[in-house]
Amino acid sequence: MKNRNVVTKRDILILLVIFAGLIGWAVITTHSKKAAKAVIIVHSKVYKVVSLNEEKTFKINWKGKYLMTVQVKNGAIRAKNSTCKNKICVHTGWISKDGQSIVCVPNHIIIYTEGAKPASCDLMTTQ
């Protein structure tokens, strides 16, 4: 009969397997990324959430009025066209990193990314 009070190779193997499993879980959990997506806010309400992993072009309409055309491609999003006069949103170009945003003040639209790579800074000071 085996002596149950002695640490056997089998015991160590089981412990090692459990420990390896824990390490694997830790690595996967800490390195797992949320799917990159873009949140579109119109007039303070979430209008749409789109995955940045798909390719599509769509229009933003608000209360029956066309405001903006948005394009998603290669993990990035941009305002392709807008009814606003200053076109600051269109000139912003593509955004693909967390912390970046496209803002159209006249049309009350904000587009920002979530779960993407972080931008180089938390915030940006502009005029």
């Binding site: 000139h91 970046q100 800074c121 915030l123 940006m124 000071t125």
Partner: peptide, 19 residues
């Protein structure tokens, strides 16, 4: 600290010249 970028006045919206 919060890391804040200073926009490049001749760059695009997300182009920083300093932090």
């Amino acid at each position: 600290p919060w890391k804040i970028g200073v926009r490049n006045p001749r760059g695009d919206m997300n182009d920083s010249i300093a932090y």
